[in-house]
Design a protein around this nucleic acid. Structure first.
Length: 302
DNA sequence: GGCCAGGGGATTA
DNA sequence: TAATCCCATGGC
C-alpha cells in the first residue's frame, strides 16, 4: 500500500484532532489510527509520538496527494506551539484546557460539506450526527473507493440534494433538519457553489462570511461560526454551544452567549476559534470522566 | 426578548 | 422504562 511518512510533527494528536467535534467522517480504529474520507480521498492516519516531534504515517496516500492536499487539510504548516504560548500568555485559565487537548489542529475542510454537516449538528449528539451524515453519503453520494474492506462514499453534491424532497431523506433520519438541508442545497445551487467558496478567501472578513452563511435556512450564529472556523479559516470565530456555556461558566463565571462572545473576543483575540477547540475538548473530557467514574473527587464535591 | 415545537436517538435517572 | 439531553433555529 502506498504511504507517506512525515517526521518531526509537534502539537499533533489524532484523538484530539478527530474527537473535538470538528469533523464527522473519521473513525478510530482499534490500533489507534483514524480512517476517513475528504473529498474523494480516502486515508488512514497513524501517529507515533516522540519527544522531538512524532511521525505521521498516511496510508493510501501518495507524495503528490500529501503535498497537494493532506498537508493543507491537516493544517501542518501552522505553528500551534506558538499559538498555544500566545493564548496562555493572554489568559492564565486557558492553560488547563490547552494541556488537555494539546494536539488539536483545526482541519481545513470542504465548505459545502461543512455547511450541511453543521446544519445537521444542531441540537444533536455527535454519534448521531455521524450516523446522519454517513446515511446521507451512502444514499446520495458516489462510491469513492474502498480501504481495509470498508466502502467510502463522497459527500453528495449541492445539485443532488437540491432535487430532493423531505420524504426522500426519510431513511437518513435527519428529523426536522431535512427541510433546512434541502432549502440550503437549493440556495447553494442557485447562488453557485463558487459564491460559497469565495467566502474562504483571506480578504473576505469573518463578518461578511457570517452574513452570507446565515442567509441559508437552518444556519444561525452557532452553526455559522462553526462553518467559518472549520472550513473558511476564520480563526477569530468563537462558536458558543451548550458545552461552551458550561465551560465558560465553570472557568470564568460567564452566563450569557453575549458575555461569552465578548469575553472571547477580548481575551483570546484572533485565535479565539482555536481557544474554543481546546475548551470544547477539555469540558467534554471532564464530563466523560465523571460519567465513567462518578466517585472522583471533583464530582463528589458538588 | 422569551418561549416553544421540530425528530430522533443516545444517555442518564 | 422514563426522562432528559443534545456543538440551535425559526416562528410566534
Amino acid at each position: 500500500m502506498r504511504q507517506v511518512s512525515i517526521e518531526g510533527i509537534r502539537d499533533f494528536d489524532l484523538d484530539h484532532i478527530f474527537d473535538c467535534g470538528q469533523a464527522f467522517r473519521w473513525n478510530r480504529r482499534p490500533d489507534g489510527s483514524y480512517a476517513g474520507i475528504a473529498g474523494r480521498r480516502i486515508a488512514n492516519l497513524r501517529f507515533d509520538p516522540c519527544q522531538q516531534g512524532g511521525r505521521l504515517i498516511l496510508s493510501n496516500v501518495t507524495d503528490e496527494d500529501f503535498n497537494g492536499f493532506w498537508k493543507d487539510y491537516l493544517d501542518l504548516g501552522r505553528d500551534y506551539g506558538a499559538i498555544k504560548k500566545e493564548l496562555a500568555a493572554k489568559d492564565p485559565v486557558i492553560g488547563r484546557a490547552i494541556g488537555a487537548g494539546q494536539g488539536i489542529r483545526l482541519l481545513r475542510q470542504d465548505k459545502w460539506e461543512t455547511l450541511i454537516s453543521f446544519i445537521l449538528s444542531q441540537n444533536n449528539h455527535i454519534p448521531r450526527i455521524k450516523k446522519c451524515i454517513e446515511a446521507l453519503c451512502c444514499q446520495f453520494g458516489e462510491k469513492a473507493g474502498q480501504l481495509d474492506g470498508e466502502v467510502y462514499y463522497t459527500f453528495p453534491a449541492p445539485e443532488t440534494l437540491a432535487c430532493l424532497e423531505p420524504e426522500d431523506l426519510a431513511e437518513c433520519r435527519l428529523g426536522y433538519r431535512a427541510k433546512y438541508l434541502i432549502g440550503t442545497a437549493r440556495k447553494v445551487a442557485a447562488d453557485g457553489l463558487e459564491r460559497l467558496e469565495t467566502m474562504g478567501a483571506p480578504d473576505v472578513s469573518a463578518a461578511e462570511a457570517f452574513e452570507y452563511v446565515t442567509s441559508f435556512p437552518g444556519v444561525g450564529p452557532k452553526v455559522a461560526n462553526c462553518i467559518l472556523l472549520f472550513s473558511m479559516g476564520k480563526y477569530d470565530c468563537f462558536p458558543v454551544d451548550v458545552w461552551m456555556k458550561k465551560v465558560m461558566n465553570d472557568l470564568y463565571g460567564l452566563e450569557s452567549v453575549k458575555e461569552i462572545s465578548d469575553f472571547a473576543g477580548r481575551t483570546y483575540g484572533s485565535y479565539g476559534g482555536i481557544a474554543q477547540q481546546y475548551l470544547f475538548y477539555y469540558v467534554r473530557q471532564i464530563s466523560r470522566r465523571q460519567s465513567a467514574d462518578p466517585l472522583t473527587l471533583e464530582n463528589r464535591r458538588k
